[in-house]
Design a protein around this nucleic acid. Structure first.
Lengths: 239, 239
DNA sequence: AAAATAAAACTGACATGTCAGATGTCAGGA
DNA sequence: TCCTGACATCTGACATGTCAGTTTTATTTT
């Protein structure tokens, strides 16, 4: 006798829809979002949309300015640096814990993920590759057995995912990151955690450097982040 | 010409009121909260109350079960352990960063806070002592110059504060924690970060052990966590 | 033209109402 | 006594409406 899974609430589904839309470049960074328009577009009332936006605000994916508007997030160079610093802190901690709790399981999971990445790379399927890139890092948090750590990661990973998809479409960059992942696993197998952490650090800063130079291309310019740009917001979103 | 600070929204004020109420033992752990009753009690409509509860859910201070009810959080022993582990991760990271960025400022701030704690201790003002105890840890996050780290700490500190106030009313415990703080600063002054981290670890686990044994006293029992206990919820809350 | 200003159109904040689902009550049947 | 099930009463989910603050546009004034 298993409990039926309660169907997801409208709010939940809206959160997922919008989060995906932000991550998958359906919106530009800094683009204004309107409760009313989104509600119409999704065919639901303002309430769940509003609640969804509040939740996304907690995830840092949107910024809400009272009585002014809601906007897709953007990052200043400083915030960008802080974000990568934070990821380093969390992944390092998760690595330590996961390694301590179950070294072998960790290595196996990472290796499995690595081969999955490789096969997508061979097929030139960049999008799927990036999915596995994401799950590679999540492995650490799944195995560290600490829900708070995991939650904290989820909180920053949204922003990171959004940035990654926008900036990672370059073969050379991909090659390097794949090598990073590989070297990372090798270090862990040699029980060289310090080395693994060094790789992580370099991995993040490499990403930073590139993105910092190119963020303008993905963000709506300050001047046009006003109302008039909002009309085109009638992209079709589906729940 | 300074910008007038926009008066806080009802939602914000409600969040603060409820957060304080939870932290300051106005509610029991696991106690049910009702949107409608809270709205009446505060003299506002359900909307801001609902939004406030959603926000507190994000902070982990309440649990919302669809169509069933909203309850003040409780912690299983495992979660309790995870929480302290998480605090250790965050504070350790913040310490490293703050130390690296500005060692001297850090030491001064910690010392100042320490004397403040001491003076409250001398006056036997436990509540104020605990406030400074809290700010002692916050110093690390103020000086580490990373908003993500700080946010993550705020996210878990609510739960921790709630637990601390419920369990820290014992002279012996207080003495030990004060000694911990003192020793912590001494270590940093000697540039012995590893030692400081050891102290942190012991500091947290001491707290854990005590609380794990006593959580029942602060939580509403499972049996009575139902509706009938809700009537007494008419405590007067003020915005 | 340009600058000041009035009007219109927008925003999110909040109030209110409705409803389905979950729970408790309690009568009536074993 | 122990069920059992209709029904009243809770809950949060969601729809809708109003309003004050903000921005854009239209209009007037210089």
């Amino acid at each position: 006798m298993k409990a039926l899974k309660r169907s997801k609430s409208l709010t939940e589904r809206t959160v997922e829809t919008l989060r995906n839309a932000i991550i998958n470049e359906d919106f530009m960074l800094g683009e204004p979002l309107s409760e009313t328009l989104l509600a119409e577009s999704l065919g639901i009332s303002k309430s769940p949309v509003r609640e969804a936006l509040a939740q996304l605000k907690a995830e840092g994916l949107v910024t809400i300015i009272p009585q002014k508007g809601t906007f897709v997030f953007t990052l200043t160079p400083k915030e960008q640096k802080e974000l990568s610093q934070m990821r380093f802190v969390l992944e390092t901690a998760a690595l330590d814990l996961a390694y301590e709790i179950n070294r072998d399981k960790l290595i196996k999971a990472l290796k499995d993920n690595l081969t999955a990445m490789q096969s997508q790379l061979a097929k030139d399927d960049l999008d799927k590759y990036l999915v596995f890139d994401g799950s590679f890092h999540i492995v650490l948090f799944d195995l560290c057995d600490n829900s708070y750590l995991r939650d904290a990661y989820n909180q920053v990973s949204g922003k990171h995912s959004a940035l990654r998809l926008r900036s990672a479409r370059r073969p050379k960059h991909i090659e390097k990151t794949y090598a990073d992942h590989e070297a990372f696993v090798v270090c862990i197998e040699k029980d060289d955690l310090a080395g693994a952490k060094e790789i992580l650090k370099a991995h993040f800063s490499r990403f930073d450097d590139y993105f910092r130079e190119n963020i303008d291309k993905f963000a709506v310019s300050n001047a046009s982040s006003t109302r008039k740009a909002r009309s085109q917001q009638n992209r079709r979103l589906k729940l």
